[in-house]
């Protein structure tokens, strides 16, 4: 009797778990929506509150415009076409600075990481330069390169350089000696070791460097455009301040947030795709 009861209980528990699995399958899609809903809940509430307090005159509307007004400003700029010019020039400056900063950081970083002599020669000087707040260079760049594009791109490239450089050097230094030995056991020469082991092994660190470099790039693009530009999202900040239009300032901030997020997302996608082989918590 006891045996048959136990058997019955077992059957029942199997039955229950089957039902649970089926329920889970049915809830698959709503579960995804639930996460999205949960993530959006707080921002939407906040926006509604903001809209509410400005609409009902609880804060001064000429200092803090409603979200709808900011969207309206962006929309108007989109319609008259000026939006694309501002966004385009800012993106151009950022990407060009990011490109040069990265190239120089990879070349010098690899050299310093691979050769002890190069490290002794260059690294102390680079570290000393790193200690200088990069914005301190601005007056000099303007003096040397003028107020046009070169000084802006140089400033952004300088900002991108340091995080990428540090991560390239750190990444190469932390390549597992045991993997390099495998390459040596197969008689690979120095160049082959770099291409087949050191580069792929230091890729995770390099990509981390790229992402923090991009973050700093955005910071420096604002600095560069604040200091003297006739177009760009940073120029909109200055324009908004001078014409007492906080809606333009906030529109520029929203656009910075949007573009920053999009470019970082692209790099993050690249990172996930290139590093799918990594054995870590996320994978």
């Amino acid at each position: 009797m006891a045996i048959s009861q136990g058997h019955h209980a077992e059957k029942e528990s199997v039955f229950k778990s089957v039902i649970k699995v089926k329920q889970k399958e049915r809830q698959g899609m709503p579960a995804f929506l639930k996460t999205a809903g949960l993530a959006l809940l707080f921002p939407i509430l906040l926006l509604a509150l903001w809209e509410g307090v400005t609409r009902f005159g609880l804060v001064a509307g000429h200092l803090l415009p409603a979200p709808s007004e900011i969207v309206g400003t962006i929309w108007a700029m989109g319609v008259d076409g000026s939006l694309w010019g501002h966004m385009g020039i800012t993106l151009y400056r950022l990407l060009w600075g990011f490109f040069w900063g990265t190239i120089v950081a990879v070349v010098i970083g690899s050299l310093v990481a691979m050769s002890r002599n190069a490290e002794t020669m260059f690294d102390p000087l680079i570290q000393a330069f790193r200690a200088i707040p990069s914005l301190a260079w601005v007056p000099l760049f303007i003096l040397w390169l003028g107020i046009g594009e070169p000084s802006k791109v140089t400033l952004i490239a300088l900002g991108v350089f340091f995080p990428v450089y540090l991560n390239v050097v750190g990444g190469i230094h932390s390549v597992d000696r045991k993997l390099i030995e495998v390459g040596k056991a197969y008689g690979l020469n120095q160049f082959q070791l770099v291409r087949r082991i050191i580069l792929p092994a230091s890729l995770p660190s390099f990509l981390t460097g790229l992402r923090s470099g991009l973050g700093l790039g955005w910071m420096f693009v604002v600095a560069a455009e604040l200091l003297g530009a006739s177009q760009g999202l940073g120029y909109l900040l200055v324009l908004g301040q001078n014409t007492l239009s906080p809606n333009v300032i906030l529109a520029s901030i929203v656009l910075f947030a949007f573009l920053g997020k999009v470019t970082d997302y692209a790099l993050k996608k690249l990172q996930t795709r290139a590093l799918h082989w990594q054995d870590n918590m996320k994978n």
């Binding site: 993997l179 008689g187 092994a201």
Partner: peptide, 15 residues
């Protein structure tokens, strides 16, 4: 190249 080495750990290239 005449020598093949097998180490204590697999030492595979993770990528």
């Amino acid at each position: 190249r005449e020598l093949g080495v097998i180490f204590q750990e697999p030492r595979l290239m993770p990528w």
